[in-house]
Amino acid sequence: MSADLVDLFALGAVQRAAVALVLGAIGLPVVGVVIIGLDIMPVRFAMMHIALLGIAIGLLTGLDPLLCAVVACGLSGAGLAPLARGASGLSGAMGLVMSMAIAAALLVLSVSGVNAAGAFELLWGSILATRTGDVVLLGVLAVVVPGLFLVRRKQVALLLHDRELAACSGVRVDRLTLVLLVLVSVAVAGAIRLTGALLVDALTLLPALAARRLAGSLSGMAAWAVGIGVVVNAAGFVLALLLDQPPGPVLVLLAGVVALAAHLIPERRTTTWQHATH
């Protein structure tokens, strides 16, 4: 490790960013596993739009914009849960939410007289601007998300495998779906400060996609996802500091390379979900 890198890690902002990335690597990849299992890939884009609405409300009211974004995403996740029972699932609902959220955000920004560019800048993220509150939120997610996954592993596995089978097996699917959607929504909002809304897949989805190729069970997939997330986040952050480049894009590219490399391995998805239900 070079002297310059040691000096950088002596800075409080760099230390907070490093801790946030490690904590994010523990909870957020497990959220990616849930996103894949529920087949709700559009949820990331829906929450990005809702986060923008929350930021706009924060700028209008004078409250913390990112706190408003987290609250807005959490409430929206809870509101989407009942729609999972429909025949069309959540895809159509998320498209509606995205359209309404961006329209409402632009209207709020117009009413408040705030420059829209200022709101959009928050969506780009800045790891080195990580605050203590962001670290606390990621720390809570690092405990709650894996904790729920471990405690309710069989119920979660059944739900991710087949909603109707889970209901017939006595799983309270509506309540569990509600909890999972709220966690996913809050996690996406919580990752905005680190990589930005447009690059949030580096912390959530890409490690989970790579893990799906490597694991033979749902628990193994979660473990692989966390392991990949920790390695990618740590290596990407150090590499970005060494190259003096924005950490967000470096993290995404490195996570993408890992996911592509894992893609060369034959997929074991069927085995993963079948083993998970036993």
Rank of each mutant, 00 (worst) to 15 (best):
M1H: 08
A3P: 12
V6D: 15
L11V: 05
L11M: 10
G12L: 06
Q15W: 10
L21A: 07
L21R: 01
L23K: 05
L28C: 11
V30A: 07
V30M: 02
V31C: 10
V31K: 02
I35C: 11
I36R: 07
I36Y: 00
G37Q: 04
V43H: 12
F45M: 15
F45Y: 14
H49W: 03
I50P: 03
A51V: 02
L53Y: 07
L53F: 07
L60A: 14
L63Y: 14
V70L: 15
G74M: 10
G74N: 11
G74K: 02
G74W: 10
G74Q: 08
S76H: 01
A81I: 10
A84W: 01
S91Y: 15
G92D: 05
M94K: 10
G95Y: 04
A101C: 07
A103P: 05
A104D: 03
L106Y: 13
S110W: 09
G118R: 06
L123Y: 06
I127P: 14
A129W: 13
R131E: 07
T132A: 02
G133P: 03
G133E: 06
L141R: 02
A142N: 10
V145W: 12
R152P: 11
R152T: 08
Q155M: 12
V156L: 05
A157R: 13
H161D: 15
H161I: 13
D162A: 05
E164G: 14
L165V: 15
A166S: 08
S169R: 12
L178F: 13
V182Q: 04
V182N: 07
V186S: 05
V188K: 09
G196L: 07
A197K: 06
L198D: 14
L198E: 13
A202N: 03
L205R: 10
L206T: 03
P207C: 00
A210R: 08
A211D: 00
A215W: 02
G216W: 11
G227F: 05
I228Y: 09
I228C: 09
G229C: 03
G229Y: 06
N233T: 05
V250W: 09
V250D: 08
L253D: 03
L254F: 03
V257L: 08
A259H: 05
A261V: 06
H263L: 15
L264T: 13
R268F: 01
R269Y: 05
W273D: 06
A276P: 11
T277C: 14
H278N: 13
